[in-house]
Simulated assay, not measured.
Amino acid sequence: RNLSFLDLCFTTSVIPQMLVNLWGPDKTISYVGCVIQLYVNMCLGSTECLLLAVMSYDRFTAICKPLHYLVIMKPHLCLKMIIMVWGISLACSAGPCILTLNLPRCGNNVLDHSLCELPALIKIAFTDTTTVEMSVFALGIVFVLTPLLLILISYCYIAQTVLRMKSNAGQRKAINTCGSHLTVVSILYGTVIYMYLQPGNRASKEQGKFLTLFYTIIIPSLN
């Protein structure tokens, strides 16, 4: 339910404004609208990465400890994990957004992008953006690489358990349980790592536009 709600918010924060700009001659967005879109995208992207890590723990418990699943994954624990995921994302996304919005642009308000996104806003700044880029990189490590490491550890244990299963039906059931989650993890993390964990001058502008549309529209639709 949380993943569905999150992806609904993700697409709602991007698609309506994008359709307005594509449909008519007016290609603008208000400053307040840009700020809101930037923060919402940062927050929802961070939440999705953390939520996928929580879901991998759920898969690990279901396959590796099936008899203890109902005891471990109590509704109270699930609620606490969800509150923690949303709380961390809401708090930590504010810092890079504030730093980016405070960069001097010397009147340059033309954004060569389909939405207000962090890398695109950093590129139009008329100053050294090393501090902001480093903060984004640090945030990427916390919200991308750390959850990814937890997911990989979970799937290492899952793989060991599946390989030890003597029943082919049990193995198929385990693969079906993890297949969709693993697909989403692979696509999302591959895209986000390319976007946020590389030096800004190496990122292709056109590739950046495409990948942004990919993880804000296509991946949520697949979910």
Rank of each mutant, 00 (worst) to 15 (best):
R1A: 11
N2D: 12
N2G: 14
D7E: 08
L8P: 00
T11G: 10
T11K: 14
T12I: 15
S13N: 02
L19A: 10
V20L: 10
G24S: 14
P25R: 13
C34I: 00
L38V: 06
V40P: 06
N41Y: 01
M42I: 02
G45Y: 05
C49N: 12
L52M: 09
A62L: 08
K65T: 01
P66S: 09
H68L: 12
H68R: 09
K74Y: 00
P75W: 04
L79R: 14
K80Y: 02
V85G: 02
A91C: 14
A91P: 05
G95M: 13
L99C: 04
L101N: 09
L101M: 14
L103G: 02
P104N: 08
G107A: 05
N109K: 09
N109R: 02
L115N: 08
L115G: 02
E117T: 04
P119E: 04
L121N: 08
T127E: 08
V132I: 14
A138G: 09
L145E: 06
T146K: 04
P147N: 01
L150Q: 13
I151Q: 05
I153R: 10
Y155L: 02
A159R: 11
N168H: 12
A169M: 12
G170F: 06
G170I: 07
K173L: 01
G179K: 06
G179I: 10
S180E: 03
H181I: 09
S186E: 13
I187Y: 04
Y189A: 06
Y189C: 10
G190F: 09
Y196T: 09
P199R: 03
G200Q: 01
F210G: 01
L211A: 13
L211C: 10
T212S: 06
